[in-house]
Amino acid sequence: RPDPERHGALRMTDEALPILKGEASIRLRRDSIKAASKFSPSVKALVSEEDAPLLSALKAKRRGLAETARVPAYIVFNDKTLIEMAQVRPKTLDDMARIGGVGAKKLDTYGAAFLEVINGEVETLHPARRKLAGRDSGTLYDRLLEVQADLARGGEGHDKPLSCSASLLAKVAAQKPQNEMAIERILGERRSERFGRAFLDVLREAS
């Protein structure tokens, strides 16, 4: 029992004497709950041997970016996100946007840096297109860009070169106008005359 005169130290009672003399025995309860491990599994153990080197490289990039920004590493991306990157190996910002934990802001801030680690090169996208990464509007933008290239010198290829800015293409892709009047409000009369109908065909095919 605790002995208050000895600051809570234990002292033997009369009931303990037979046990100490070997004249009686006691049975102790066996714990049914195992103690929790002090060590969590290594992150590398959660990926294949093939993906482990890439995961290490991604963690190194994360550490460098975190130190530069003076924030904890998990603020950049958590381990689960890096593991998925190492396993999926996204090739474009559109692919990267589909990784869990990669929102629009982090994609814009860190996406290109991590793609460079994964693929060894940087995907160059106009900022207006980058904002559409991972969304249907991004695919529409790419298709509109192709159509614009085909019509840059008109249907016959003899007209004066004309094009739409990246922001205009992004606006068309995001707003998805459904008629010539709506698309003219975005592009203006001259560009709408050159590209309007073709752009509307792209939008209708995608709907």
Results as ranks from 00 to 15, higher is better:
Ile75Lys: 15
Phe77Glu: 04
Asn78Pro: 10
Asp79Ala: 04
Glu84Trp: 01
Ala86Val: 04
Gln87Ser: 13
Val88Cys: 00
Val88Leu: 08
Arg89His: 09
Lys91Arg: 13
Lys91Ser: 12
Thr92Glu: 12
Thr92Asn: 13
Leu93Lys: 09
Gly100Thr: 10
Gly100Gln: 11
Gly100Lys: 15
Gly103Met: 01
Gly103Lys: 05
Lys105Asn: 12
Lys105Glu: 15
Lys106Asp: 04
Lys106Thr: 12
Leu107Thr: 06
Asp108Met: 14
Asp108Phe: 15
Thr109Asp: 15
Gly111Phe: 12
Ala112Glu: 14
Ala113Glu: 13
Leu115Glu: 06
Val117Gly: 06
Ile118Gln: 03
Asn119Glu: 06
Asn119Tyr: 04
Asn119Phe: 03
Glu121Phe: 13
Val122Glu: 05
Val122Asn: 00
Leu125Met: 13
Pro127Phe: 01
Pro127Lys: 06
Pro127Cys: 07
Lys131Ala: 14
Leu132Trp: 02
Ser137Pro: 08
Gly138Gln: 06
Gly138Ile: 07
Asp142Ser: 12
Leu145Gly: 02
Glu146Arg: 07
Glu146Thr: 11
Val147Asp: 02
Val147Thr: 03
Gln148Ile: 00
Ala149His: 10
Asp150Ala: 12
Asp150Cys: 07
Asp150Arg: 14
Leu151Lys: 07
Leu151Asp: 06
Ala152Glu: 07
Gly154Cys: 03
Gly154Met: 09
Gly157Asp: 04
Gly157Ala: 02
Asp159Val: 01
Asp159Phe: 06
Asp159Cys: 08
Lys160Ile: 10
Leu162Gln: 12
Leu162His: 01
Cys164Ala: 09
Cys164Asp: 04
Ser165Val: 00
Ala166His: 10
Ser167Gly: 11
Leu169Val: 01
Ala170Leu: 10
Val172Met: 01
Ala174Tyr: 04
Ala174His: 02
Gln175Cys: 12
Gln175His: 08
Pro177Ser: 10
Asn179Arg: 09
Ile183Asn: 05
Glu184Tyr: 01
Ile186Gln: 08
Leu187Ala: 03
Gly188Gln: 13
Arg191Pro: 07
Arg191Thr: 11
Glu193Gly: 02
Arg194Gln: 14
Gly196Leu: 08
Arg197His: 09
Arg197Val: 03
Ala198Thr: 08
Leu203Gln: 08
Leu203Glu: 10
